[in-house]
Design a protein around this nucleic acid. Structure first.
Lengths: 150, 150
DNA sequence: TTCATGATTTGAATATTATTCTAATATATT
DNA sequence: AATATATTAGAATAATATTCAAATCATGAA
């Protein structure tokens, strides 16, 4: 007997979902064929990127959430774009933004606990030409991906 | 003729999607009834909070993305939890976290442009007993909600 | 305005897929 | 080992998305 959850979680984290046309139709007081037409349009013109699940991250071993402000150092040979692209490849990094001001990149990281975060930081943040970091640990995730937790 | 897009976007931002059981089943080399059983289990025990869409936020008038670090001031009568809860109610705030360190709350805000952000900041950040803020503007959103943009 | 063109909506028919139910198998507990 | 519980599987059904053709609406040109 195989434990399907990890595989399901990995797939649903990024996709493998679909809009409920009939639900949208009834909520918007429209015909389902009309909603279907509009949604497909948004998919084709790139307005909609994906359909995915939002999890209770505490229940999938990613309850420890950290924001890391990253500075690259002026004389660095790697551009922020390159470093950001490298960071984006990590599955436990939820978001990567190149920002203005004193820091160059901000990332949001999800790990099981502080120990796993420490391993991540050792492995990832030492590489990639990162000079300086400032860490903000989330004690309470009140809202995530537009979803209010509770 | 009504423009359905705003309504569809609002609903898909938080929900109105469903997992594609058969897609999961084929990718995981399992029977769809088995996947169905496991997914329902995760829904019922709260592991899965919702199924939603991810957008190209530039195309839905939310291309301007800002992280705001918030400090509340020691003698404040409102707790971080209360302020965070109030902030979470705003539809254009993607995430709200209560964090450790020199700042108390970090939020991620989406607006159309800097002008709309200014209106938001005037309206929201002046209320709620917020003492000091530090703003990081995203010049490039490389990854969002686990989805790499491109 | 009227006409013509393209875009959006609609309804009916069909195809897919989720869901239900029952049975079988695996896992855990005593 | 024996019983109870949890998970997987198959067949039948229900629900829903999708397709297609036709109707309606919106737009711009004459």
């Amino acid at each position: 007997m195989k434990n399907l959850r990890p595989g399901i979680i990995e797939l649903l984290k990024k996709g493998s979902c679909t809009p409920r046309i009939s639900d949208l139709a009834s909520k918007l007081h429209s015909k389902s064929t009309t909603v279907h037409y509009n949604v497909k349009q948004m998919e084709h013109d790139g307005t909609i990127k994906s359909y995915k699940a939002v999890f209770d991250y505490n229940k999938i071993g990613e309850g420890f959430c950290t924001y890391v402000l990253i500075s690259l150092g002026k004389q660095e040979y790697k551009s922020p774009e390159v470093v950001a692209g490298e960071l984006a490849k990590y599955g436990n990094i939820e978001s990567v933004d190149i920002v203005t001001g004193q820091w160059e990149i901000i990332i949001k990281v999800r790990t099981k606990d502080i120990a796993e975060y420490y391993e991540f930081a050792k492995k990832v943040l030492s590489l990639h030409g990162i000079e300086k970091t400032h860490t903000l640990n989330s004690m309470h995730q009140v809202k995530t991906e537009f979803m209010t937790m509770g």
